[in-house]
Amino acid sequence: MSRGVDPRLLELLNNASSLQLFELSAVIERLLADPRRIIAVRVNLHLGQTVRFLDWRDGSLREGKVLAMKDTQLVLQDLRERREWKLPYAAIEPPPAGAGRTQQGAAAQPEPSVPKPTREDFRRGDKVAFEDKYLQTVVGTVVRINERTATVDAGGGNTWRVGFALLRRVLDI
């Protein structure tokens, strides 16, 4: 479990009280749950990609194939044991930048760029959705069109000012 950990750090941790270790654990959990850290790993990942991940049982790095990507964790299939793992993004060794879009053995294909929505794409009363800073989807109604943002009423007295590029239309069926 101590693979690659500085021995001086291990000694300090062994001498820490249980309360200090618990406090440190809480701080580390908050840092690992930071959406910016999750996005930094997730931006170069795609379904079917082979990545290396940390096996928490013995501290070894293993290889797995990405089966599903959720908000805070992903599902991998261990290539050696064929077992599925649900892991936080922090357990994944980040792939090199730009490596996320290449298929095994295939040349990288540039994705067709989708034009970003602009002010002209929205009107008052449109039903829209966007992700907040915690990557939670917020659905609401445009109540005002500003110069660079739309004011969105999410219900319950919650209003948001959101840039047009972050909005997407929601169709009522």
Rank of each mutant, 00 (worst) to 15 (best):
A26F: 05
N14L: 13
P94G: 05
R82W: 03
A150F: 04
K65A: 08
V41A: 04
P94S: 05
N15I: 00
G105Y: 09
F53N: 02
A97H: 07
V114E: 15
R36F: 04
E23D: 07
L167F: 05
P117D: 04
V114I: 14
K86V: 11
V66E: 10
N15R: 15
T151K: 15
L19M: 10
V170E: 14
P96I: 09
R148Q: 10
R148V: 10
L79T: 09
F164N: 01
Y134P: 00
V114C: 11
S113Q: 15
R3F: 08
G163N: 12
Q73T: 13
D55E: 10
S18Y: 03
E111C: 07
I39N: 11
V41C: 06
A68Y: 10
S113M: 12
I28G: 00
R82K: 12
L47I: 15
T137R: 12
V5G: 03
R82D: 07
V27N: 05
L24S: 14
M69L: 14
L10C: 11
G48K: 08
E147V: 14
R148M: 09
P110M: 09
G157E: 08
L61P: 01
A107W: 12
A107M: 12
R42V: 03
W160D: 03
E131W: 03
Y89G: 02
L24D: 01
T50A: 09
A150R: 01
R144K: 15
N14K: 13
P112D: 15
A16N: 00
V5D: 10
L9E: 10
E11S: 14
L167C: 07
P115F: 06
L76Q: 04
D132W: 09
A16C: 12
R36S: 07
E131N: 13
W56E: 13
R36V: 05
Q104S: 10
V51G: 02
Q104W: 11
G4K: 02
S60P: 01
L45M: 06
R144I: 00
R37Y: 06
N44V: 01
S2N: 13
L31K: 09
E81T: 12
D58L: 02
M1N: 06
I39C: 03
V152A: 06
G59N: 05
V162S: 05
P35T: 04
W56F: 02
A108Q: 10
S18N: 07
F130L: 02
N44H: 14
L32G: 00
S60Y: 01
L67A: 12
L45Q: 07
L9K: 13
T141W: 05
G163T: 11
L45P: 01
I39T: 09
R148W: 02
Q104N: 07
W56V: 11
T149Y: 11
R124S: 04
V43Y: 05
R3L: 13
R80P: 00
D172Y: 04
A154F: 08
R57L: 12
R62C: 00
E120Y: 07
T50Q: 09
A97G: 04
N44E: 15
L45R: 07
T102M: 08
A16I: 02
R8F: 10
L79V: 05
K116F: 10
